[in-house]
Structures are given as structure tokens and as C-alpha cells.
Nucleic acid binder design. Structure first.
Length: 755
DNA sequence: CTATGTAAACAAC
DNA sequence: GTTGTTTACATAG
């Protein structure tokens, strides 16, 4: 009993349902309890699979060359319009055949075809947003392109969801910038069944629109969703042990196990009990309190109210959702011997109560990382089917120097914003970075994100805040949605008052979050009063912890560009849509705080981020590029403002510090060590650079050389069945100087299509 | 410090 | 009683 003296009274909370409604979303999906075992059938999958399998052949136009320095690694230039999925399938098969002795890692880069980056309109953002995440796609899978909308074409047979894809972790989602192309990519990527193994449930779904009747649907979802029974895991077996996952992770697993990616509290409890018997039989009843606490605490968990207002569903903010499922994580752990992970898994908690605390969260991170690739000069190999083009190869792209340049930047997950000048953020980990960058430094703009979301409704644009924020932020991807901190309540500045301390509802969005407006709302800041709370942790924004996944790195700063694209649609709104996952979190790497900047209090709570929640996702209007595969584009123009802010300077300070390198992917790429600092890339954003275009000198880009550009690519490791996104630094031939140096290669020579 | 886990006080239903 | 929020504290790293 402590009566805590301090405990302030709690004001009444009010929940407001936002007017928005997107109706659609809501279905209810969640699964009620887990269905027994259904899942399997994946019809949907089937279809996709079929496709996959069938396509084993490489489409024409693909060029494959051996990576000069990396053993068993080949670089595959894929035409934009090619079906990536097929290619991946084929490569996977090829890699498998080769076994460890042959090529088993493939770096895929898009080339030719469509230029990707149409700056303009990009539909979605793609992954870019975050580089880090590679996640999956989501829901919409296929349709993403325009489709996003409602009707997704889900495969007919398929249900909406189903697990077919999943791949969350590794899969990359991307949408390319181009529509068409994008589509292709998406699909493919999404599908990546090859990862099959990892499947779990996840993804799929698109949302759907309708769902009014929540209840009804539930079953469906459920059925689809859950994880395969078997998959689950070991803990199941040992019921008595506490699972090595944090509550936050388990909640994510639970929510992501549904098709709609939303679940009621009760269902979350049930899911956890069903999957982790420990909670059913051994844990103290207080665990449920902890679940609730986590839901309320983390911004990534967003409460949505059903249309009728009667049912509250917990969802994961799309931008923060990696769509991880228990199954995926479990598999990943198995695959990767990461010591830690494993450790966790095995941990036994015998300790009496107190002791057990040690579990650490294990969510895998899905992101991609940026890696410089070097091409060797000669080795070309082409494989492939139809076209074999021998490439002359040349030198490596990045010379070592380059390589080092690349740094990764992480984006912060949490965004906070300060609206008005406040900027307080704590600087904590990851998040900060971004924030800092943006926010603080720039103070002004934060990312507000873009509102683009689906709803086009305009209107809101800038909130009252005064600053126009539209842009998004920052640099990179912050996806972090988490930002949400804002949540509605406050947000309303427009709406109402801004900050009154009164009641602030958290995040729940009633209708779904529809984005658009929400955004605005979100913007608000929450900051609480001033100092008071320094300590409390209000909601945290952030992401789930991931495991070791690779992170994405982006060098870029302007992330805006990148990120922007990510989402496909603005329209979508509802569901989970796309999202990317991000990783932010912590990760290890990340963690570093950037405290430097931070001013004051660290407590997160207070700070507010302007960001809108959704913003993260869509943001970038302009952006076009898709990252996906496509070259990153230069956004420059698009966001004019950003650049400034973001500018190199900011970056420079930022992020990088923390991490030296990539995590996981090291395998593949091991490139040299990167330095953070030096790289031009980093500073400038890659995005800016980029691309293919002949150089137009991007204005900002400055940093880098004109020649270079970054392209997003994927790394397929057939040994691990992993697919990760990477950023490639490539230089252009023609330009004058190459920063890279003599070494650098011109890819264009090899793969003309790249440019 | 940060991230997590717990416990608990309250509020709104 | 359930669901949500928010504090406060404890602890591992």
C-alpha cells in the first residue's frame, strides 16, 4: 500500500471518439479466442504460393553478377517491372541448390525499367520510410497500389488475411515508387513466401472495410489469424516458464495474430494465455494489469473504438507495427543463433518472483540496413535465364571509403514533438534522434506528418499550431509513430484547447484512426504541464524491440523523402495497412541516446510531438521514391523545406553516433566499418541524392557527390531464408567527380538499366 | 538512465 | 467487475 502521496488525482478521462470514422475499419476482427487450429489452410497462400513456385524462372532482363568481395554472393539487377517474387523464389531455389558452397546470398537491386522514382506522385511510400523496417507489408498486400482501398483484391479464395504472407520480419515491403512497378514489388515482396517458414500469421489483411459488424467477423479473422499451433513455440511446451518476451511483445504478437490487427483487451489476455500457459497457470493475476499498463503506456498501441462505440480494440500503430507474430519470432530465433536471443528463449525463470525479471524482449527487428555494396569489377556472372548479359563489371561501387561512409541512421522511433517550442524530449534512445533532429534542431518543423493519409481530406492541414508543419519530418523515417504521443486530446488544439490539461484521451481513435484528421489531432502536443512529471513515463512511443534484425540504415537525412512514400495510400486508412515496421527500437544499436541534445527532461511523457501519428506513414507526399527497390530518389525538391532543416547539419549530429554498424546483416555485407561522420551520405540524405537521374544537382544534396546515389535493394540470404532491405550506394559514371574515388564503379556500365 | 515489470489508485463504463 | 490511465517503485542492463 503505498499511498502514493504523489499520485495526482486522475482526471477523468474522456474518450473521444473521433469523428472520423472510418468506418471501415472496424470490423472486428479480432479473434475472439483463438480458434482452435485453424489456420492453416492457407488458401490464400496457396494461390500465392502457386505463383511463386511457378515462377521460378527468372524473368528476362535480370542480370546476375558475382559480388566481388563477398563469397557466395551475387548481385542481381532486377528490372523494375519484373516480378520480384518470382525472382526471389528462383534465387532462393538457386541458393538452396547451391548450398553453402554456391551463391546463397543475393543482393537485388532494381534497374531499369521504370524509373522509379517518380517523384511525383508516389503512391506509397514505401518502405522508405523507414528504412529500417523492412517489414512487411501488410495488409494490403497486393493491392496496394491503388488498391489500397477497400476492395482489395485479395485473392479470392483467400481470406483476407490469412497467413499467407507474413514474413514479417524479413520480408520487405516495398512499394516502389512507380505504380506499376510498385505493385509488382509489393506483391512480390509481400509474398515472399519463400520465407515461408517464417510465416506466421500476419499480414495479410487488408483491411477491409467493412466491418461493421464486428462481431460477426470476428470469427473469420480469427480463424485466419492465429498462428499455427505448432508454431508457437516452445514455451508452450514448457508452460511453466515465463516466455522470454516482454508484455509489449506479446501484445504485439497477439494483435498481429489477427487479421485485422486489432484485438480487444480480453482477447489479448486470452491469446496470451493460450499461447503462453505460464500466464494462465502460473503468473499472478497482476499480469493483466501489466498488459493494460503496457497498452496504455506505449504509443504504438492504439485503441480504436468500434463504430458503435461499444467495443474497443487495441491496434498497433501502423507505422510502428512490424507485424511480427510469435511464430515469426520464434523461427527467427531458431534460425539465428543469436546468443542473446537464444538465451532468452531458454531462460528459465526459476527465480522466485523477483528474479525473473530478466527477460528481455525479443522482438525481432525487421529492418533493413544500409549497406554499401561493392561490386567487383569483374566477375560478372549472369545468371539467369533469359538475359544474360555479361556485365563487364567494374569496380566496386563504393570504394571502401564509401563504404565507410555509409552510416546508418536510425530513426527514432519515437517522435515527439514539441510543438511549440517546447521540445523537450528526453532524449532517449532512439527516438530521439529523429526528434532531435527535427524537432529540436529545427524546432519548428516537426514532422507533422503528413497528412496524407488516406483521407484526403484536406482541411486540416496545419493545425493551429502555427507552424506549418507539413512536412514531415525528419529525416528519416521516423516512423515512429509513436509519436503519437500526441494523441488526440491534446491535439486538438484546433479542436479545442490545446493543452488543457484536462483530460486527455490517449490515443484512442475512435473510428479508426483515420488518418488524416487524426493527424492533426495528433499533432497536438501533449506536453503536460511543465515540469511536473519529469519522471513519469507516459506513453512511450516506440517500437518494439526487435531482435537483431538488421536495421535499416539510412543515411539519409532527409528522410523525408524516403519515408514518405511508404504508405501507400493515403487512403487506406484503416487498417493496418501498411506500415512498416520499424524498428526502432531499441535495439541495440540504437539505443544510444542522443542525449546531447536533449534539453531537459527526459521524460518522455511530456514532450509532445507534433507528429501526427499517422503521419509517419504517409508523409511524404512528394517523395516519391520508393524505396523499395528503386533508387531512392531525390526528394529534394519535394520537400523543400525539409532539407533545410534536416540538413546536413542536423544529421550530422545526430544519429549516427550510435551505431556503428549494422547489426545483423553483417553477414552479408560486411562492409567496412562505417563511420558515421564522414559520409556524405549521411549527411545529406541519400535520398537526395540519388538517383538516377543524371544529375541534376540536387540542391541540397550536396553532400554527396553528385554522382552517387543510393538505391534500395534487398539482400536475400538463402541460407537463412532472410530477406532484408539495404541501401546501396552507387556512383554514377558520368559525373564528374566521384567521390568515391577511383575505385568506384560505375554501375551503369554493368547494368545500364540502373540508371 | 532506460526499458521493463509490478502494484495500485482512480476513472469511466 | 472490466477496461484504461497514470503514478510510483523496483530492477536489470
Amino acid at each position: 500500500m503505498k499511498t502514493s502521496p504523489r499520485r495526482p488525482l486522475i482526471l477523468k478521462r474522456r474518450r473521444l471518439p473521433l469523428p472520423i470514422q472510418n468506418a471501415p475499419g472496424e470490423t472486428s476482427g479480432e479473434e475472439p479466442k483463438r480458434p482452435p487450429a485453424q489456420q492453416e489452410p492457407g488458401q490464400a497462400q496457396a494461390s500465392k504460393e502457386a505463383a511463386e513456385s511457378s515462377s521460378c524462372k527468372f524473368p528476362a532482363g535480370i542480370k546476375i553478377i558475382n559480388h566481388p568481395t563477398m563469397p557466395n554472393t551475387q548481385v542481381v539487377a532486377v528490372p523494375n517491372n519484373a516480378n520480384i517474387q518470382s525472382i526471389i523464389t528462383a534465387l532462393t531455389a538457386k541458393g538452396k541448390e547451391s548450398g553453402s558452397s554456391g551463391p546463397n546470398k543475393f543482393i537485388l537491386i532494381s534497374c531499369g525499367g521504370a524509373p522509379t522514382h517518380p517523384p511525383g506522385p508516389q503512391p506509397q511510400a514505401q518502405t522508405s520510410n523507414d528504412p529500417k523496417r523492412t517489414e512487411v507489408v501488410t495488409e494490403t498486400l497486393g493491392p496496394k497500389p491503388a488498391a489500397r482501398d477497400v476492395n482489395l483484391p485479395r485473392p479470392p479464395g483467400a481470406l483476407p488475411g490469412q497467413r499467407w504472407e507474413s514474413c514479417g520480419m524479413w520480408s520487405a515491403r516495398q512499394r516502389a515508387g512507380g505504380e506499376a512497378a510498385g505493385c509488382t514489388l509489393d506483391n512480390s515482396l509481400t509474398n515472399i513466401q519463400w520465407l515461408g517458414k517464417m510465416s506466421s500469421d500476419g499480414l495479410g489483411s487488408s483491411s477491409i472495410k467493412q466491418e461493421m459488424e464486428e462481431k460477426e467477423n470476428r470469427h473469420l479473422e480469427q480463424s485466419q489469424v492465429e498462428e499455427p499451433p505448432g508454431a508457437s513455440t516452445s514455451w508452450q511446451d514448457s508452460a511453466s516458464e515465463r516466455p522470454p518476451y516482454s508484455y509489449m511483445a506479446m501484445i504485439q504478437f497477439a494483435i498481429n495474430s489477427t487479421e485485422r490487427k486489432r484485438m480487444t483487451l480480453k482477447d489479448i489476455y486470452t491469446w496470451i494465455e493460450d499461447h503462453f500457459p505460464y500466464f494462465k497457470h502460473i503468473a499472478k493475476p497482476g499480469w493483466k494489469n501489466s498488459i493494460r499498463h503496457n497498452l496504455s503506456l506505449h504509443d504504438m498501441f492504439v485503441r480504436e473504438t468500434s463504430a458503435n462505440g461499444k467495443v474497443s480494440f487495441w491496434t498497433i500503430h501502423p507505422s510502428a507495427n512490424r507485424y511480427l507474430t510469435l511464430d515469426q519470432v520464434f523461427k527467427q530465433q531458431q534460425k539465428r543463433p543469436n546468443p542473446e536471443l537464444r538465451r532468452n528463449v531458454t531462460i528459465k525463470t526459476e527465480l522466485p518472483l523477483g528474479a525473473r525479471r530478466k527477460m528481455k524482449p525479443l522482438l525481432p527487428r525487421v529492418s533493413s540496413y544500409l549497406v554499401p555494396i561493392q561490386f567487383p569489377v569483374n566477375q560478372s556472372l549472369v545468371l539467369q535465364p533469359s538475359v544474360k548479359v555479361p556485365l563487364p563489371l567494374a569496380a566496386s561501387l563504393m570504394s571502401s571509403e564509401l563504404a565507410r561512409h555509409s552510416k546508418r541512421v536510425r530513426i527514432a522511433p519515437k517522435v515527439l514533438l514539441a510543438e511549440e517550442g517546447v521540445a523537450p524530449l528526453p532524449a532517449t534512445g532512439p527516438v530521439q534522434e529523429d526528434r532531435l533532429l527535427l524537432g529540436e534542431g529545427l524546432s519548428p518543423l516537426l514532422p507533422v506528418q503528413s497528412i496524407k493519409e488516406e483521407e484526403p481530406q484536406p482541411g486540416e492541414e496545419t493545425p493551429p499550431l502555427g507552424r506549418p508543419i507539413k512536412v514531415e519530418s525528419p529525416p528519416l523515417e521516423e516512423w515512429p509513430s509513436p509519436c503519437l504521443s500526441v494523441k488526440e486530446e491534446s491535439s486538438h488544439s484546433w479542436e479545442g484547447s490545446s493543452h488543457s490539461p484536462t483530460p486527455r484521451p490517449k490515443k484512442s481513435y475512435s473510428g479508426l484512426k483515420s488518418p488524416a484528421r487524426c493527424v492533426s489531432e495528433m499533432l497536438v502536443i501533449k506536453r503536460r504541464e511543465g515540469r511536473e512529471m519529469s519522471r513519469s513515463r507516459r506513453k512511450q512511443h516506440l517500437l518494439p524491440p526487435c531482435l537483431d534484425e538488421p536495421e535499416l540504415l539510412f543515411s539519409e537525412g532527409p528522410g523525408a523523402s524516403q519515408r514518405a512514400t511508404e504508405l501507400p495510400l493515403p487512403a487506406e486508412s484503416s487498417e493496418p495497412a501498411s506500415q512498416l515496421g520499424y524498428s526502432q527500437e531499441e535495439g541495440g544499436p540504437f539505443k544510444t541516446p542522443i542525449k546531447e541534445t536533449l534539453p531537459i527532461s527526459s521524460t518522455p511523457s511530456k514532450s509532445v510531438l507534433p507528429v501526427t501519428p499517422e503521419s509517419w506513414r504517409l508523409t511524404p507526399p512528394a517523395k516519391g521514391g520508393g524505396l523499395d527497390f528503386s533508387p531512392v530518389q531525390p526528394p529534394q525538391a519535394a520537400f523543400g523545406p525539409l532539407p533545410d532543416s534536416l540538413g546536413p547539419t542536423d544529421f550530422s549530429t545526430t544519429p549516427l553516433k550510435s551505431i556503428p554498424l549494422f547489426d545483423s546483416p553483417r553477414e552479408l555485407l560486411n562492409s567496412e566499418p562505417f563511420d558515421l561522420t564522414s559520409d556524405p551520405f549521411s549527411t545529406s540524405s541519400p535520398s537526395d541524392m540519388e538517383v538516377p537521374k543524371p544529375h541534376s544537382p540536387g540542391p541540397e544534396v550536396a553532400g554527396l557527390s553528385a554522382n552517387r546515389s543510393l538505391t534500395e535493394g534487398l539482400v536475400l540470404d538463402t541460407m537463412n531464408d532472410s530477406l532484408s532491405k539495404i541501401l546501396l550506394d552507387i556512383s554514377f559514371p558520368g559525373l564528374e567527380e566521384d567521390p568515391l574515388g577511383p575505385d568506384s564503379i560505375n554501375w551503369a556500365q554493368f547494368i545500364p538499366e540502373l540508371w
